[in-house]
């Protein structure tokens, strides 16, 4: 896309074709981050990212030649991929740079519980560890070198270090970007008649008040619907957004987390309750719920994610909320 003639309202395609538009929607999504672009061995056979169905099919087709796998990145994609590869019989190692797995989606307690479950399933989890090089043999991956000095065998290497907004193609378009496409609350970009929605936009996180880019399905659904409405002349506004609001099941344990999960400041009041592996945590900023983690028992989680998302002041009902959440772990 080029900015030289915005009044022309034309976009250029990779094939060289040009397309005219009255209104344009940018919905190019997110793309996996390739950490350490210049890492040795990154372009060898057996190194994959996982974002689309095509990626999954390519990995499956490569599987028959594999006995060992290394997952670089202990986030949701990394952990879910590790489980799937373990189930088809591979010896799997997950390598995470941070001191805990799921650093963006869980606190230390939850991460430790899940890591223990993964270890029980014979998945090796290495934290505070990094990969420095992918070892290859005849152009195929067969291991990784660790920052700490060791070597882990790996016929298959999955890069799962996160996603970023797919915005490189906009560099000459004149559209304002800041890690993601900057939009107003009706999903308009800085250029007239161009709108954006989904994983490539930048928005304000309701829980932290900070700018965020986040590839969450429900955010994409909502912003897409607002953009469609705006583009067809209707009135609709971007709902409150969170950059952390995730739900999944790992090693038989359901987990839902939303909002602010790591707090250092005294500004926040933190409440936790544990029953065996089951665990619940609420984080308040005065009478507003700003963060939550439910592990093991996720019942009624939506009530609380909505309190966070809409920044509902709870007043004297705050104690009732805490009691409801903490005493009803089943």
């Amino acid at each position: 896309m080029r900015s030289d003639q915005p009044e022309k309202k034309v976009i250029g395609l990779q094939s060289g074709k040009e397309l005219a538009y009255d209104k344009l929607l940018l919905a190019a999504g997110g793309i996996p981050i390739m950490l350490l672009q210049n890492m040795v061995g990154l372009d060898s056979k057996g190194v994959f990212t996982l974002r689309s169905l095509d990626d999954a099919i390519k990995i499956r087709e490569y599987l028959p030649t594999c006995r060992t796998a290394v997952i670089i990145g202990g986030g949701l994609v990394g952990i879910k991929t590790a489980e799937a590869l373990m189930r088809v019989g591979l010896a799997v190692t997950v390598i995470e740079q941070q001191p805990q797995i799921l650093p963006l989606r869980a606190d230390l307690t939850v991460a430790a519980t899940i890591a223990a479950r993964l270890k029980k399933q014979n998945i090796t989890v290495l934290t505070k560890e990094a990969v420095t090089e992918i070892i290859t043999q005849k152009g195929r991956a067969n291991g990784v070198c660790l920052a700490s000095g060791g070597i882990v065998p790996a016929d298959l290497v999955i890069m799962a270090v996160g996603v970023r907004a797919n915005i490189d193609f906009l560099s000459e378009s004149g559209i304002k970007v800041d890690h993601g496409v900057v939009v107003n609350n009706r999903m308009r970009t800085s250029v007239p008649d161009i709108y954006a929605a989904g994983d490539l936009i930048r928005f304000i996180d309701q829980a932290t008040g900070e700018k965020a880019v986040s590839g969450l399905w429900s955010n994409a659904v909502h912003t897409g619907s607002v953009a469609g409405c705006s583009m067809s002349g209707g009135r609709s506004e971007m709902p409150p957004m969170l950059s952390v609001m995730n739900s999944t099941e790992i090693a038989g344990l359901p987990i839902i987390s939303a909002g602010l999960l790591h707090t250092q400041s005294d500004q926040y009041a933190v409440y936790t309750e544990a029953q065996g592996e089951k665990y619940r945590k609420l984080i308040f900023d005065q009478d507003r719920l700003v963060g939550m983690i439910f592990l093991g028992d996720v019942s009624r989680a939506g009530v609380y994610t909505n309190l966070i998302r809409n920044r509902i002041p709870l007043g004297d009902r705050r104690d009732t909320v805490i009691r409801e959440v903490m005493t009803k772990i089943r």
Binding site: W217, S247, T248, E249, S299, A301, V303, T305
Partner: peptide, 13 residues
């Protein structure tokens, strides 16, 4: 697939 996203979203629980 049992991802529980609906549980996370339902404001009525």
């Amino acid at each position: 697939i049992g991802c529980w996203s609906c549980i996370m979203a339902c404001p009525f629980g």
